[in-house]
Design a binder for these strands. Structure first.
Length: 522
RNA sequence: GGCGCUAUCGUCUAGGGGUUAGGACGGAAGAUUCUCAAUCUUCAAACACGGGUUCGAUUCCCGUUAGCGCUACCA
């Protein structure tokens, strides 16, 4: 394991001369290192840039970050980009875009492709120690699963037993080979590790195949590169998806062969689709991509909150948790073992129907938890980008009227639309007609309202008094009076409370819209 | 096929040898305000199945089933 003391490196270091990891204790400042000696917690998030950042990866990132922050540890971001065939810049950008939106940050950043020398050295060392062998079998083409190769293979016969002399000779002659790990066979040995989530794990070495370390083009495989970097970067805890649980045996083997000690593992249950299948962009569309949530108007803190509740629980009845509350509450013990369904709807109609209802609800909770000026500041760019060049002041006045009426930030565009235009788009004139009334009554109400509002101060209380008085005079219920006015100024029945709305709209706009409605009624 | 992981309301989960199996979302009904929303109240809704162990299992063990993962010179 790796320790570090403020600013001083303590832990495993790769010793190129002796082909192994060695313990190092803080160089010149050894005495101080000993003084402050404590285990430094280091975690990493290691996405491979072969696609956009998806929600499962985001959750892995978040859990790592939470664990680091909870324990005062270090968060490492490492791009696992050893698959040159499939890596794309677009993917790298998408991942950073997603992570930036999450706004959690990280402390150190690495790229595996810049560390190939280290990987090869370690592969060489493992080979020199006899834990690996050259496999000159030509690479399989295509998907072996589909080509009917369902039988278990554990090693390539003939290659494992190749003498060192012959192996060297064929390698020297330029024959391509993959380097495979020589897993102990027929020894009744087993590989074990303790997983912080899944408990004690044991597997017979005989059931582990001779996995590749190096491809025939000399590039490291994921297993090798990942483990080599984990040791070199002194990662203390590997928190990752459960799809790696069975790979972990191989990793333990690599850690041990490289002369290091395996870190602590914690595997996370997977996020799956409503039909329990794996989340995939091809099958489930954009709902699996983090940026989709951003673009739909989720707030990062709500999205993070939602993801944390998938496969983890604070063990009390809290649902809405702030970033800090999550940091405080997070622990590996709270992680579940069963896969969690992201309950989105497959055929997407409206954004609200697409996403997991709980995510939407949490977002509305976080919106309501925001101070008006803060919420207003988040809403403003969304509105401006959509067209209307509202002023900051006006947005600030509108915000309290819609805060409890929007679930996603983008809902501001539909909830406050009538504040953003000079003239209302056409609406159904029949909407102007109040309960138990007709067009004539609506016209009467609007005419009256026009008169009253022309001479009323545009403040909540005066408006309230004046309009209620007018209703009484006309012998109408308040609701019958308010509806025609509301529809006249908002263009629809469902809108924020009337007096506040009129106050923000102002006398001029209000009267103009009432007049238009009055004309339309004829 | 082989190896492994998992199984509590529709979904996320709490719980754990004796409980009215708790909470949340979503759903339904009602209250309330000028509509909507918010809020409040109430209701419906779960321990996958079969064997053990036990005085007693949803909880522990075994099996079945189902889902998922790994089984690539992908990560």
């Amino acid at each position: 394991m790796v320790t570090k003391v403020t600013g001083i490196r303590v832990g495993f270091d790769w010793d190129a001369r002796h082909h192994q990891f060695r313990w190092v204790l803080g160089g010149r400042r050894r005495s101080r290192a000993l003084l402050y000696s404590r285990v430094m917690l280091r975690v990493r998030f290691a996405p491979s840039p072969t696609g956009f950042l998806h929600v499962g990866s985001a959750r892995t990132f978040i859990f790592n970050w939470l664990y680091a922050r909870h324990n005062g540890g270090t968060m490492v971001l490492r791009l696992d980009d050893t698959d040159v065939e499939r890596n794309t810049d677009a993917s790298v950008n998408s991942i950073f875009e997603g992570l930036r939106w999450l706004d959690l940050g990280w402390d150190e950043e690495y790229k595996q492709s810049e560390r190939l020398g280290l990987h090869r050295e370690i592969a060489e060392a493992i080979f020199q120690k006899g834990h690996a062998y050259r496999d000159f079998t030509p690479a399989h083409v295509g998907d072996t699963k589909k080509s009917g190769a369902h039988q278990t293979w554990l090693f390539n016969p003939g290659m494992r037993e190749l003498s060192r002399e012959e192996s060297d000779r064929r390698a020297a002659s330029g024959e391509p080979f993959a380097l495979r790990f020589r897993v102990p066979r027929g020894t009744a040995e087993s590989v074990r590790f303790a997983d912080a989530v899944y408990g004690e794990q044991v597997k017979a070495a005989d059931d582990i195949e001779d996995f590749a370390l190096l491809r025939s083009d000399g590039m490291p495989t994921y297993h090798l590169a990942s483990c080599a970097d984990d040791v070199d970067l002194r990662i203390s805890h590997i928190i990752r998806g459960q799809d790696h649980l069975s790979n972990t045996y191989k990793h333990v083997l690599i850690f041990e062969a490289a002369g290091g000690k395996a870190p602590q593992f914690a595997h996370l249950p997977l996020l799956v689709a409503p039909d329990w299948s794996k989340l995939s962009k091809r099958r489930h569309g954009p709902v699996v991509s983090v940026t989709t949530y951003r673009d739909a108007g989720f707030m990062p803190e709500a999205f993070i909150n939602f993801l944390c509740l998938l496969g983890w629980s604070p063990k009390d009845d809290r649902e809405k948790l702030s970033r800090q509350e999550l940091v405080d509450a997070f622990s590996l013990e709270g992680i579940n073992r069963a896969n969690a369904v992201v309950n989105f709807k497959e055929p997407a109609a409206t954004p609200e129907e697409t996403f997991d209802p709980k995510a939407v609800w949490l977002n509305s909770e976080h919106i309501r938890g925001l101070a008006i000026d803060e919420l207003s500041a988040r809403l403003l760019p969304i509105v401006r980008e959509a067209g209307p060049q509202v002023t900051r002041e006006k947005m600030l006045a509108i915000t309290p009227l819609i805060r409890e009426r929007i679930k996603l930030l983008r809902d501001v565009l539909t909830a406050a639309d009538f504040f953003f235009v000079d003239q209302l788009p056409p609406y159904d004139v029949n909407e102007l007609i109040p309960q138990k009334g007709n067009a004539a009554l609506a016209a009467k109400v609007l005419a009256c309202a026009g008169e009253v509002l022309a001479k009323t101060e545009f403040q909540h209380d005066p408006l309230d008094r004046a309009l209620r008085a007018a209703a009484q005079e006309l012998g109408l219920k308040a609701g019958q009076m308010f509806q025609p006015i509301r529809v006249a100024v908002c263009g629809r029945k469902n809108a924020p409370p009337l007096f506040e709305t009129l106050e923000v709209l102002g006398r001029e706009t209000t009267l103009a819209r009432i007049d238009v409605a009055f004309q339309n009624l004829k």
